[in-house]
Design a protein around this nucleic acid. Structure first.
Lengths: 178, 178
DNA sequence: TGTGTAGTCTTTAGCATCGAACTTTAGCTT
DNA sequence: AAGCTAAAGTTCGATGCTAAAGACTACACA
């Protein structure tokens, strides 16, 4: 009974025994991506915890900063980008309000809308996380030379372009399903 | 008030305005990874739904197949790999039992342990998902030549090696935190 | 101007997950 | 052997999420 996580190559070898037509090259890329993201999130989670933040809160802060000055978005927009229901967004904002990370004001242009804004506290928190995160990120990439880093970024960007064009708001579809 | 998701490069430009010491090359890699994983999961989720599977169930099936014949693991092992608490694992297995995707038997060698096994139904489901997923994966990578795919796989593997060595069971730490 | 329709956010009920306490067993230690 | 410690998995209470329904607003069209 194996305790140890199979290496990526072991995983793919087994997958190929189960499904002969599998393309090992493609599978390697896709599974490496997914494994990396899991590990990165574990690492981020640790750093967030030391700063008294949860990962849901962090996601929202990122979106608001990413929006640029004046750091405002509608709840529905954030929800769509994060793949959440509007209901979840309502409650997340509620929680973040109690910590003064964000504000919620009525939209003067449309009374059924609401504007979520980033507070200075929220912006500060974002910065603290980034400072810690960048240490981890540098460590993660330390085995890659600068040209390799650039190349990796470029290759990933090309993948991303395809999938983001196909799912503009995460609502499109890349393949026909039925 | 922006509705549109900033492109990766826009995002990084804004981040740099907020945090001047940020390394754009590193940030590009890390954020592309995270964006890609989100999109991939959306796509997988769709395909799973058409096969009557949920993503939590899919995760467990993957681990059992990955273990190789005879497709058996302890609940605690699966939980650790998926980053779940043992409690969550118990309930997941309960649900999967009702669909005959897995079995739960006492471990003959240690009466406090339990063995989760993959059923033929579960193995079939895994195969169905993989067949659909490989279509999507091929489409995702279609803009990359075969050497580029190999290169991307190799670069990602090097990152993965570093982080998996540092967090052997997702319990280690890559950076000192306090 | 009135009405229908679509869209935005909130409320509610049900469910999955977490953290923590608990039960049972295995393996030491003396 | 007997007791101590560590480990595995289940149970329990609390929290965040989803899906669906509801309240309200804006816009199009007659």
């Amino acid at each position: 009974m194996p305790e140890r996580l199979p290496t990526l190559d072991e995983q793919i070898a087994i997958y190929q025994r189960e499904y002969r037509d599998l393309d090992p090259q493609v599978e390697k890329v896709v599974n490496a991506l997914s494994r990396l993201d899991r590990r990165m999130n574990v690492a981020y989670g640790r750093q967030l915890a030391t700063l008294g933040l949860t990962s849901p809160e962090w996601e929202v802060l990122k979106e608001l900063v990413m929006a640029g000055s004046p750091y405002q978005l509608w709840p529905g927009t954030i929800a769509k980008r994060l793949g959440l229901t509007p209901a979840a967004m309502t409650h997340r904002i509620d929680r973040m309000l109690t910590q003064s990370l964000v504000t919620r004001e009525p939209d003067p242009d449309n009374r059924v809308r609401v504007i979520i804004g980033l507070t200075d506290t929220g912006r500060e928190k974002w910065l603290e996380v980034m400072r810690k995160a960048s240490v981890f990120e540098e460590e993660l990439l330390q085995d890659l030379s600068s040209p390799e880093r650039g190349q990796l970024g470029e290759l990933l960007t090309r993948l991303l372009r395809r999938v983001e064009d196909a799912q503009p708001d995460a609502g499109g579809r890349l393949t026909d399903l039925d």
